[in-house]
Nucleic acid binder design. Structure first.
Length: 104
DNA sequence: CCATTGACGAAGA
DNA sequence: TTCTTCGCCAATG
């Protein structure tokens, strides 16, 4: 699996919307490698809206891992996304699905 | 080459 | 509903 495919998808996520790791994995034909997608994001190059990728429960996985802690959440809130008391967002409401430009 | 770990997730207890 | 276990992919020790 090529990380490039992961980045290509993440780049298409519109502002104010999010996607989870497993969903991305499925789009690139690797439905069982959500963890690998996570690794790809860790290597994520500049210019990619990495903050729009959250886990399946709508929670932030990089909570204490980013430079300023909770950076991802701040960025998302900056795009109009709201979090509940448990620090999660509503996936049913913000999850986005790209148009499948099936190329191959 | 084998064991562990990790920005994950579904299933079982 | 909360916690634990297992599977899967890539990277590291």
């Amino acid at each position: 699996m090529a990380f490039e495919d992961v980045y290509a998808i993440v780049r298409k996520i519109p502002r104010g919307r999010v996607m989870n790791y497993g969903q991305i994995a499925g789009l690139i034909r690797h439905p069982l490698s959500a963890r690998a997608v996570g690794w790809a994001m860790q290597q994520c190059p500049k210019g990619i809206p990495w903050h729009r990728v959250v886990n399946a429960e709508g929670g932030i996985s990089t909570e204490m891992l980013t430079d300023p802690p909770r950076l991802q959440r701040l960025l998302l809130e900056g795009e109009g996304i709201r979090f509940d008391q448990s620090g999660k967002l509503s996936m049913s409401r913000y999850r986005w699905t790209p148009k499948k430009t099936r190329k191959k």
